[in-house]
Amino acid sequence: MFTDFYELLEISPNANSETIERIFRYFAMRYHPDNRDTGDDSRFSEIVEAHNTLKDPVKRAQYDIQYRDNLGLRRELTEEASNTKGLERDVVIQAKLLALLYVRRRQDVNNPGIGDDELERLSGCPREHLDFHLWYLKAKSWIARTENGTFAITVEGIDRANAEHRREATITTKLLDHAD
C-alpha cells in the first residue's frame, strides 16, 4: 500500500531539504518512544521512513514518481465517485442481471443458472465490471452459484426484483395520474 510521506510529515511535495529536516526533528521528538506523553513506536517508524526517503535525492526522485502515479489514481477515483451517471448505470446493470436470472429461474426452476460468459453477453457489461456487480449481488444474497458453477437468483433476489417492479409500477402510475 502506498504511503503519502508528504502528508505524513504535513509538508508540501515542493518542500526543500531544510524544511524536511526541521519537520522531521519536530515529529521525531514528539513521537519518539522515549517521550512518555506522546511517544508512539509505529508513528515514529513511519516518520523515520518518510525522512530517510525524502532526504535522499535519488530515493526522493523514485518516490515522487510513485507519488504522482498515486495522485493520478486518487484523481480518477474522485472523478468517478463524483459522476452520478456511473452509479445510475450500476443500478441499471444490477437490475438487469436480476431480471435475467429471474426470467431464467421462471423458465426452468430445476436448471436456473446462467454462466459467466452468457451473463456478460446478455447484460452487455464487460467482464471487469461484471465481477463487481456479481460480487455485490452475491453479498446481498440475491444471487448464488449453483452446483454446476452458474449463477442463479435466490428467493431473496426474487423478492428484491418483485419489490423493485412494484415500486417502479407505483411511480409510473402516479406520473400517469398527474399527467391527466
Rank of each mutant, 00 (worst) to 15 (best):
E118Q: 14
D117N: 12
Y102H: 10
R104N: 08
D108L: 06
E128C: 01
G115F: 11
S141D: 13
G113P: 07
A144C: 10
W135Y: 15
L130R: 02
H129Q: 14
R145Q: 11
K138L: 11
A139I: 08
R121W: 03
R105D: 13
I114L: 04
F132H: 13
L122P: 07
G124Y: 00
W135Q: 14
N111P: 05
W142R: 10
P126L: 05
P112M: 06
R121T: 08
E118C: 08
H133E: 02
D117Q: 12
P126N: 10
V103K: 00
L100P: 00
R104G: 04
W135E: 14
I114S: 01
E128Q: 09
I143L: 05
L122R: 09
L101Q: 05
L122I: 07
H129Y: 12
F132P: 03
L119P: 06
F132K: 15
K140N: 10
A139S: 15
Q107C: 09
L98R: 08
V109S: 12
S141T: 10
K96R: 15
V103G: 00
Y102W: 11
A99Y: 09
E120F: 00
W135V: 09
C125E: 06
S123A: 12
R106C: 05
E118I: 13
L97M: 08
L137H: 06
A144V: 11
R104T: 02
D116L: 15
E120Q: 04
A99W: 07
R106N: 11
R121V: 04
L137W: 04
R127Y: 04
R104D: 00
A144M: 11
L134C: 07
L134D: 04
A99V: 07
I143S: 04
A99E: 12
C125V: 10
R105P: 06
L100T: 00
N110S: 13
A139C: 07
P112H: 06
D108Q: 10
S123I: 02
D131H: 08
H129F: 12
N110A: 12
N110G: 15
E118K: 13
R121A: 07
V103W: 02
K140S: 11
R127S: 00
V109Q: 11
L134K: 03
I114R: 04
R104A: 07
